[in-house]
């Protein structure tokens, strides 16, 4: 899938720029978003390919435009824009406005792909493993959370830069055609849904210490429920909460309501 025919010098440039995309969001502001972060990341390309000061200033100006994407997907876009800067420097007939439109056309899809992949699915997968370990008091929870998230993110960042510089937008076309993008999205969603299910069985709890006599045996409502279908109550609670959230109910009101009911329940002893 990944073809790379970069020479040593280009590899160095790509690595340098990709490393700089890490801090893409660090100077974020509401007017231009990650514009300065993007410029910071693409500076190595500009300064390498454009030798005269006027050309560099022109390039700084066109690269400092409103920009916002998932930073992890940044290297692919800086790589693509970097290879276009190279063409702009080498080919006098090349229209540099293409760079701006290419950047603008990539940042949206990359943000939606990246947010889904990293903020939605990968974060949930790493958090599930982490939270369940941490609830047992283990420091491994924090470590697993960091590791599971960062290993795939680092790979995407590293290869994104290389692919962007060597293939540019052609890669997106190729990936879309072969269905790889759709498959990655689907695979990530499957993993995240599996982990959401695990989380539902592990972190949601509601104990009703109500006891009664059942065929001559004293039993609790909770005990009876657990015998029939362990975790049925948590599962129903998650599905109920999901229905509320989907309806667009403001969650902080739900949070307050939960707190109020729990406190009242604990005071009168029907919840524990």
């Amino acid at each position: 899938m990944i073809k790379s025919n970069l020479n040593k010098e280009e590899k160095k440039l790509v690595r340098q720029s990709s490393r700089r995309t890490l801090s893409m969001s660090a100077s974020f502001n509401f007017e231009k978003m990650q514009a300065l972060g993007f410029l910071y990341a693409i500076l190595p390309y500009i300064n390498h390919y454009h030798k005269s000061k006027e050309k560099r200033i022109e390039a700084y100006r066109r690269e400092w435009t409103l920009f916002n994407t998932t930073p992890t997907c940044g290297p692919y876009i800086t790589g693509t824009a970097g290879s276009l800067e190279k063409r702009a420097a080498e080919d006098p007939d090349f229209d540099p406005s293409v760079i701006e439109t290419t950047k603008a056309s990539l940042m949206g899809p990359m943000a939606s792909f990246g947010d889904h992949l990293f903020w939605g699915t990968l974060r949930l997968v790493s958090l599930t493993v982490g939270i369940i370990l941490a609830l047992q008091g283990s420091i491994l929870g924090a470590l697993m959370h960091i590791l599971i998230f960062n290993i795939p993110a680092t790979l995407v960042r590293y290869y994104g830069g290389i692919v962007g510089f060597s293939e540019g937008t052609a890669f997106m076309g190729r990936a879309a055609e072969s269905g790889v993008i759709d498959f990655v999205k689907k695979a990530a969603t499957i993993l995240a849904l599996l982990m959401a299910g695990v989380l539902a069985s592990r972190i949601v709890r509601l104990e009703v210490p109500y006891s009664f006599s059942f065929f001559g045996e004293t039993t609790t409502l909770q005990g009876l429920l657990n015998q029939i279908f362990p975790g049925l109550l948590p599962l129903l609670m998650v599905l109920g909460a999901f229905a509320l959230v989907k309806k667009g109910v403001q969650t902080h009101w739900v949070l307050l309501a939960i707190l109020a009911v729990s406190l009242v329940g604990a005071y009168f002893g029907f919840l524990a």
Binding site: L199, V238, A241, L244, V245
Partner: peptide, 14 residues
Amino acid sequence: IVGALSIAQFLRMI
């Protein structure tokens, strides 16, 4: 109980 709400927030995304 809030755990259910947290999971619901994630489910909405995925």
